[in-house]
Design a protein around this nucleic acid. Structure first.
Lengths: 127, 127
DNA sequence: ATACAACTTGAAGCCGGCTTCAGGTCAAGC
DNA sequence: GCTTGACCTGAAGCCGGCTTCAAGTTGTAT
């Protein structure tokens, strides 16, 4: 699979794909004699994984560490699992912070509805 | 209230408080004759609001716009409400993306537990 | 009165995560 | 065979959000 195809499939700019590769997130992408990338199915699965993790805000560095460990084999299983546990915890905190901000916004939006209603009444009175 | 007290109360570095002020998020902080800031209760409420919104990732620019509109009075009620509605929508999307990543991590962590159990069994056998 | 911590400013620096640029190679269609 | 577009590279640039720096002033405790 060519880079443009991967880009289109996962809706990630080609530049970003190259950037991820340079950052060490895609260490196995093969290139043909003339240097053109050919993404395997496994590469694509990693791309999809990276996309998902990045969309939740996991840092590139953390993903690199995880992927490096992955390629070191079974002796790193525990460390890999621990990374996922740590990141999961951070995501829960983040989700909860966002949730409480959503609730605060709900309340404020509601207040605006009331305030706006009152203002409009005032305007009608003056007519 | 002095800047160091506000800093301590809300657990925000003094440099960040000055940065927010410069960015236009705290347009009303008064200074005494010798130029030292004195945060009013209202300023503090804004600080707390900004902290909450920033913790959920609302951009400084958006907060600035909202705060500018606030100081323009009732004629901006609708626009302010719309900003909150738009940001609320983005937060819901963000929260949901995080939630599905959490679920994916849950699944993977579980898989690791199984894999690790199997590996340990193998190790025992060999002993 | 002197030291020392806390305050001030504008400007520069840093970090993460892309994004763009310059300059070159390659491949497919006309 | 020539153009055109997709690919390649390393390096530089950009943006948001702080953070640090340099250099100076103020306020408080001994």
């Amino acid at each position: 699979m060519k880079i443009s195809e991967v880009s289109e499939k996962y809706n990630i700019p080609v530049d970003t794909l190259r950037y991820y590769e340079k950052a060490g997130l895609l260490p196995n992408v093969q290139k043909n004699e003339s240097g053109i990338r050919d993404y395997s199915e496994s590469d694509c699965n990693w791309v999809e994984f990276i996309k998902c993790m990045r969309s939740a805000g996991l840092p590139v560095k953390v993903l690199k560490r995880y992927i490096d460990l992955f390629h070191m084999g079974d002796s790193t299983l525990n460390e890999r699992k621990q990374i996922l546990i740590d990141e999961r915890k951070k995501l829960i905190e983040k989700r909860d912070a966002i949730q409480s901000t959503i609730e605060r916004l709900d309340y404020k939006i509601n207040s605006y509805e009331h305030t706006i209603a009152i203002c409009e009444k005032e305007l009608l009175k003056r007519k």
